[in-house]
């Protein structure tokens, strides 16, 4: 193998790693948004994501991963403000329902029924939002 070929291989490998890393970061950053867009997961009034219908195992595990991280964030906020984790989560749900659910995406109020946002019609806010 000539010196040039070695350099080319190294460059290609480097490029692939950078591209892969960027793709991973992109996918990770938008995990919740992508799940909502897939129509297989939606937002719940309790501040967590839920699986819509009988989603495949990979969707279920992604939802679970997000919920674990959300719970950690809610726990931290709850401790800072001296409130319960449920309250921190429910408060965040108000913001999620107000601005994160896109057209045609799913949400679930305390009645337990999954509903789809109809176009750009406003999403009803959970009653606890005041």
């Amino acid at each position: 193998m000539t010196r040039e070929m070695k350099l080319m291989v190294a460059a290609a490998l480097g490029l692939a790693m950078v591209a892969g890393g960027a793709a991973y970061a992109y996918a990770y950053q938008d995990a919740a948004a992508q799940l909502r867009a897939s129509g297989q997961a939606g937002e719940q009034a309790d501040g967590y994501m839920g699986v819509v219908g009988s989603a495949p195992a990979n969707i279920r595990s992604q939802v679970e991963q997000i919920n674990i991280q959300r719970r950690a964030a809610y726990t931290q906020l709850a401790q800072q403000r001296g409130v319960t984790i449920e309250e921190a989560a429910a408060a965040t749900a108000c913001q999620i329902f107000a601005g994160r659910i896109g057209a045609g995406q799913y949400y679930r109020l305390p009645d337990g029924v999954w509903r789809q946002r109809n176009g750009n019609e406003p999403v009803p806010r959970p009653s606890h939002c005041g």
């Binding site: 950053q29 938008d30 995990a31 919740a32 409130v83 921190a88 408060a91 965040t92 108000c94």
Partner: peptide
Amino acid sequence: LQQDAQELIRNNEGIF
């Protein structure tokens, strides 16, 4: 908690 919730979402874009 609404103000805090807004900040929480802003600081954790990936999971919200």
